[in-house]
Amino acid sequence: MILTVNEIFYSIQGESVYAGLPCVFVRLTGCNLRCHYCDTRYAFDEGNAMSVAQIVDQVATFGCRLVEITGGEPLFQDHTPALVDALLGSGYQLLMETNGSLDIDRVDRRCSRIMDIKCPSSGAHMKNDDANLQRLTVHDQVKFVIGDRDDFLFATELLPRLAAILPADRILFSAVSDRLPPDQLAAWMLDGRIEARLQLQLHRLIWPDQERGV
């Protein structure tokens, strides 16, 4: 089975509840959305064909048990579930970041799905698959990328539904870089008594001038 891979690299987890831990990233090519704030546009089309076995072999060279499949949008490719199965079968702790517009249950639930719920400023919020809320498990995570007050209110309106599924520390609020200062988002969360985790892009703080491989 062949996938198109944009890059495979070893770095620090910059987001999610695993932030700060070493992690191997498998960035797959292609995405079905075009969010206004996207910082990985290079992954829309650039990539090389690799078999599932080749990907697993390259991941193994880093000697790290935490692996994240990202993109682009991983579920945009038909053989991503096979890659998930192969990595789980090799004993990795596996994460997958997904934009929330496609069925997350296409992949094994032992993989922690880090699911975006697109807010209005993304320009893609009408593409959210509402059925994915019923597919979430306590093993998963949800992320809101917030660019303004309207996005914040959009996210908080969904919190009661998410709180019935996920603990507060697996619901992530992240500010759009260069659009919303994180201290403003923090103030809104504190003022609103929001039960969620404020998330900063740790890798962007460590390597502010690098776009790839971090």
Rank of each mutant, 00 (worst) to 15 (best):
D183R: 14
I114Q: 10
N48F: 12
Q93A: 13
L21V: 08
Y42D: 10
V138L: 12
F144K: 05
R65T: 11
F173Y: 11
T29M: 06
Q54T: 03
K118H: 06
F62T: 07
D209C: 07
F173I: 08
R106Y: 00
V107H: 01
Q54P: 02
S121M: 12
D148N: 15
D39E: 02
C119V: 10
I165N: 07
V107W: 01
G20V: 11
E157Y: 09
Y18V: 14
L158E: 06
L133Y: 08
P81Y: 04
L172F: 14
A163T: 13
V145H: 09
V176L: 11
T4R: 15
F152V: 09
D178A: 14
V214L: 02
Q210P: 01
A43P: 03
G71C: 01
D108M: 05
P160G: 10
H125K: 09
C35Y: 02
A82F: 07
M126H: 15
W188D: 00
L33S: 00
G72V: 00
V26Q: 09
C38D: 02
V67I: 05
E15S: 12
F62I: 03
R135F: 07
V107G: 02
T98W: 03
V17H: 12
G123T: 07
R106I: 04
M115W: 04
D129Y: 13
C23L: 15
L185M: 08
S112K: 06
M96D: 04
V84M: 00
M96S: 06
R197I: 01
E15K: 09
I206Y: 05
S174L: 13
D169T: 06
D191N: 12
T80W: 03
H203G: 09
I69N: 04
H139D: 12
S90K: 13
P22M: 05
L200S: 03
E68T: 14
M126E: 14
T137S: 15
V145F: 04
D140L: 06
D39H: 04
L33K: 06
C31I: 04
Q77D: 00
R109G: 11
Q201H: 01
T137L: 11
A19L: 07
F44Q: 01
M96Q: 11
D116A: 04
P182V: 15
D178F: 12
R170L: 04
D169H: 14
L87E: 03
S101F: 03
L185A: 08
T98H: 06
R149N: 13
I146R: 11
D105A: 13
G91S: 00
D103S: 08
V138D: 12
V84G: 09
P74M: 10
P120D: 10
R109I: 02
R179E: 12
Y37V: 00
D57C: 02
L202E: 03
Q13Y: 09
R149M: 14
L158D: 07
D103G: 02
C111H: 01
V26Y: 08
E73I: 05
E211Q: 15
R34N: 08
A164E: 14
